[in-house]
Design a binder for these strands. Structure first.
Length: 925
RNA sequence: GCCCCCGUAGCCCAAUCGGUAGAGGCAGGUCCCUUAAAAGGAUCACAGUACGGGUUCGAAUCCCGUCGGGGGUACCA
């Protein structure tokens, strides 16, 4: 009896052979620095072609679970793109770093006592081993990790740049804070409060500057999450008022925290989206999040006070029949009548106890009358003032004019409290709803009557401005970015506090401010439901670190450090800049290198080109978090003159997700997916029928497939090729291990067409390829070029399979060399190791990483003849072959002369004959 | 509720400007090779594009409606 091994030919392209080849070439690439991309200047200086390409993946957070087959989809996608362009002669920057600060490592540290740095570095090593195994062509000299002190030194430096700048609303750009101070000193700008700058104390000066700085401390309602023991940014809170991570309740609480004045950039962040090559979906999400509304601010007098409201519908002012203030509005106490105080207090208490979730779920209108009446400026009518929790303190002015005729929420409230309703827009015919929000002529509106909404708005804003009752304005939903976290595992703030509690920036020479070692990493967490708790950051317990003696220019003094850390978005805001110049010690990036890799290239991308990474691939989940923050930092650094472009990512592409089936037995327990058997449309595990679910890949769902497994079973090249062939990059699809064999068969066939399986000899011949073969070859080359350039790897792969199948069929004795070489080169971006191996076997020295990529020869792309389908009344009835140079009349004549067609036309005159050159002929009878 | 995207063979997917519905892969049938199986080779079948209407000489593609799936967002005045 013979063993299986003896029957497999020695030189068949098996997983074992693939693994040998892959390991060998990975070592070669590493030894030769094949993927090193030279910089114009600095430590990585080299000869740089003018034509460059910067490709970037959204860098991963190194979790303990390692990679599953879904993760590398984007990584392989960028690698194929990078390899394609590298083979075509471009200087390609492609590398990968790690977004390594964050909660999981800290939570693991709390459980085990292991330092988060150790956990994180172990995980990074696992990731590095996994991505190396995939043969990703990274410039490993450019790897960065956000937790490296040499990296976060510059994160802290950027923080100080932001802290030390202010937004000049007239010039619409950030400027150094020193320029604001000199404006105050010289009197060019009035000091708020009417003070003289030099007479103010240091603390008072800093308090005033805090209202201008782009990073500032504020005591404001923030999202406090007791379950996580930290505060969160708005972007990290879900629509139903819970933490995105951990799903704990989030409460509004007044706390003193670092904020970033991202709202100063609202207009630019919206307007500049037009200059980006990004998916419309992501642009729409950012526009939506920033939420620009055009409208008016209107003042309503209440005795000697004024209530200011924001409205997008100034045209409906005649229909304002009452007003509503947010319960927390500061005017309430001043204008409420004494008899209403008890009710107001009771309502406020009830409102504050409602969680965000309660407010979401129960939209029944509630509120109380506060005894005051306001004057509608447009008609002098006295209208009652209420407080109600459907008006939010955080948007607009925290007060509204209620127009029940045109707003459903106001309608609901008015019905409940029996308030008058005046329609100011004529509802369309047959309208039967409550509030009418459509367009129509103004009614009951004095000088506006008859106008359409747009005209009425303009007219009313003009009237308000003329009579001093208000002005046209723009309102944004975007709020400033809460920038402190009560965590250990993050970047410390590069500031200290003096005795008066004033924040003082540390000089650049003291950076980085490194994290101290502590015994206890845990932020104190609390009962998730208990809103009356206070954050207690782990660093506050590192007393030796928090108190520090420094000489900051006026002698040795005692200062306190900030015990908060930065959110983990900080490190990812600027990593593309550090990839460009990873070892530069004097600056965060050398301007020449930055300009070469990231600067605007108007001759190539048009006059509005903002610069940035040439292709950035990642999931859509960062549409309003990372991608908004990163754009903001880029713009600040651009304004301050540190960068040549004002957008970080010129082109963005969202890859889809690879999902997976999971199987549940009748008890509701997940069973191992790889042991489930499918038969006749039913799924069984150990003979028991199980139910199939579709969703994520995860340990708890027992359906994880790892790239390591796939590499071991098929080899990295086969795995890469399969992943790219599953569908277009941006489509999510289910993982199917059983389908991988298709990719393997292709690789084996291609290998066999070039290499003898039994003795390993080359099966390439000097026979000339037929004209037919050359036509197919050059058509394939042209198509594959196009597909690679447009991220259509699935169709590129299909074209290669088609060409290879042709070779298999027509050249059983051996492959003509031009076909063999072109196949290998075109395969290389997707399956680089086997391509290198075959390229070497074909007798070439060195690597094919830098080309040549085959070019299509025009002479084989033009056909001599064209076969035209002939339609009669839209249905294909026959075909005719015509010379490719034939004119329309010739084609038409040939079609009509065709036997079957002549029969169908039967001597009559067709009503119309449509000739689509190169496509078809349609005869209308 | 509002906004956006998607429905093509049993499954994953092609069809680039409105022009012959099928490139590729999985699964399946038949044949060759083989003692047999695997691997390999050859070959075949399978949908009329979720559904209903419209525009057009011609619709998977454009428009309207319905159904199904996915995503975003929501007392934002």
């Amino acid at each position: 009896m013979s063993t299986d091994a003896a029957e497999i030919p020695a030189y068949r392209y098996t997983a074992e052979l693939a693994n040998q080849i892959e390991e060998r070439w990975q070592r070669y690439w590493e030894d030769h620095g094949t993927y090193h991309a030279p910089n114009p200047v600095g430590a990585l200086k080299g000869d740089v072609p003018a034509d460059k390409l910067f490709v970037q993946d959204m860098f991963p957070y190194p979790s303990g679970a390692g990679l599953h087959v879904g993760h590398p989809l984007g990584f392989i996608g960028t690698d194929v793109f990078a390899r394609y362009h590298r083979m075509n002669g471009r200087n390609v920057l492609h590398t990968m770093g790690f977004d390594a600060f964050g909660l999981p490592a800290e939570q693991y540290a709390v459980q085990t006592g292991q330092h988060p740095r150790k956990t994180t570095e172990d995980n990074i090593n696992t990731y590095l081993r996994q991505i190396r195994r995939l043969g990703l062509g990274h410039d490993e000299r450019r790897r960065i990790s956000t937790i490296d002190p040499e990296y976060y030194k510059w994160t802290q430096w950027i923080f100080l740049q932001i802290f030390n700048s202010w937004y000049d609303a007239d010039l619409k750009r950030a400027r150094p804070i020193a320029e604001l101070i000199s404006q105050f000193e010289s009197g060019e700008r009035d000091v708020p409060g009417g003070h003289t700058w030099s007479e103010l104390s240091f603390a008072d000066q800093q308090r005033i500057l805090g209202d201008f700085r782009l990073a500032y401390m504020s005591e404001a309602p923030v999202n406090w999450c007791p379950g996580l023991g930290t505060v969160l940014a708005n972007e990290e809170v879900t629509a139903d008022g819970r933490s995105e991570r951990g799903n704990f309740p989030v409460f509004r609480k007044n706390l003193r925290q670092w904020m970033m004045r991202i709202t100063a950039y609202s207009d630019r962040l919206i307007d500049d989206l037009d200059r980006l090559d990004w998916p419309d979906k992501v642009k729409a999400m950012q526009r939506n999040w920033i939420g620009r509304s055009h409208g008016a601010r209107v003042r309503f007098a209440v005795g000697s006070e004024n209530i200011e409201v924001f409205t997008t519908r100034p045209d409906t002012l005649f229909g304002a029949t009452y007003m509503v203030l947010a319960p927390e509005h500061e005017l309430v106490d001043q204008i409420a009548t004494p008899d209403r105080v008890a009710d107001i207090a009771a309502y406020r208490r009830a409102a504050s106890l409602k969680s965000e979730l309660d407010r979401q779920e129960n939209k029944e209108k509630t509120g109380v009358f506060i005894g005051a009446y306001a004057t509608n400026p447009v008609n002098g009518k006295e209208i009652p003032v209420y407080i109600a929790d459907y008006v939010l303190m955080g948007y607009g002015t925290g007060a509204i004019m209620a127009v029940p005729g045109q707003d459903q929420r106001d309608w609901d409230f008015a019905k409940k409290f029996d308030l008058p309703i005046i329609r100011t827009v004529q509802p369309s015919e047959g309208f039967e709803g409550d509030a009418f929000t459509g367009d129509g002529p103004a009614i009951n509106s004095g000088f506006l009557d008859g106008m359409a909404i747009d005209d009425a708005k303009k007219t009313m804003i003009g009237w308000l401005e003329e009579n001093g009752h208000g002005r046209g304005t723009v309102q944004f939903k975007l709020r400033d970015w809460l920038f402190s976290r009560q965590r250990y595992w993050g970047e410390p703030f590069p500031v200290v506090y003096d005795e008066a509690g004033t924040a003082i920036a540390l000089p650049e020479s003291m950076l980085p401010i490194e994290l101290p070692d502590v015994d206890d990493y845990s932020p104190r967490t609390f009962d998730p439901e208990d809103a009356d708790t206070e954050p207690s950051p782990p660093l506050s317990r590192a007393t030796e670190w928090t108190t520090v003696e420094l000489d900051l220019g006026d002698g040795l003094k005692t200062y306190r450090r900030d015990t908060n850390t930065m959110p983990n978005w900080a490190g990812s805001c600027w990593y593309q800049l550090r990839y460009v110049d990873p070892v530069e010690t004097e600056r965060f990036v050398n301007p020449e290198n930055e300009k070469y890799w990231l600067g605007p290239r108007t001759e190539q991308h048009g006059v509005n080109d903002p610069g940035g990474v040439d292709l950035y691939i990642g999931g859509v989940e960062h549409a309003v978090l990372h991608l908004l923050y990163s754009r903001f930092w880029q713009k600040v650094l651009f304004d301050l003159g540190h960068l040549s472009g004002d957008e970080p990512y010129r082109r963005l592409f969202n890859q889809g997700y690879i999902q997976a089936y999971a199987y549940v037995d009748p008890r509701g327990v997940y069973v191992p997916a790889d042991e489930v058997v499918e038969q006749d449309g039913k799924f069984t595990y150990n003979g028991e029928e199980v139910r199939r679910e579709y969703g994520k890949m995860g340990k708890s769902l027992k359906n994880v497939v790892t790239p390591d497994e796939m590499c071991a079973r098929y080899g990295a090249d086969t795995f890469r090729f399969y992943e790219m062939s599953m569908g277009p990059m941006d489509v999510s699809r289910p993982w199917a291990t059983k389908d991988v064999v298709g990719a393997q068969r292709f690789m084996q066939r291609l290998w066999r067409n070039l290499v003898d399986e039994t003795d390993g000899s080359l099966r390439v011949t000097d026979e000339e390829a037929s004209v037919e073969a050359l036509r197919l070859l050059h058509k394939t080359i042209a198509g594959v070029h196009d597909d690679y350039a447009n991220l259509r790897y699935n169709t590129a792969g299909a074209k290669l399979i088609e060409l290879n199948n042709y070779v298999t069929k027509h050249y059983p004795a051996g492959t003509p060399r031009p076909l063999a070489e072109a196949l290998v080169l075109m395969l290389a971006p997707q399956a680089p190791h086997v391509a290198e191996e075959l390229w070497a076997k074909l007798g070439h020295e060195g690597s094919l990483a830098h080309g040549p990529f085959p070019a299509a020869d025009e002479q084989y792309l033009v056909e001599d003849t064209v076969e035209y389908p002939i339609q009669v009344n839209g249905k294909v009835r026959s075909r005719v072959v015509v010379s490719a140079s034939a004119g329309q009349d010739e084609i038409k004549a040939a079609a009509l002369a065709e036997e079957k067609i002549a029969e169908l036309v039967a001597g009559g005159e067709p009503r119309k004959v449509i000739v689509v050159p190169g496509r078809l002929v349609n005869i209308v009878l």
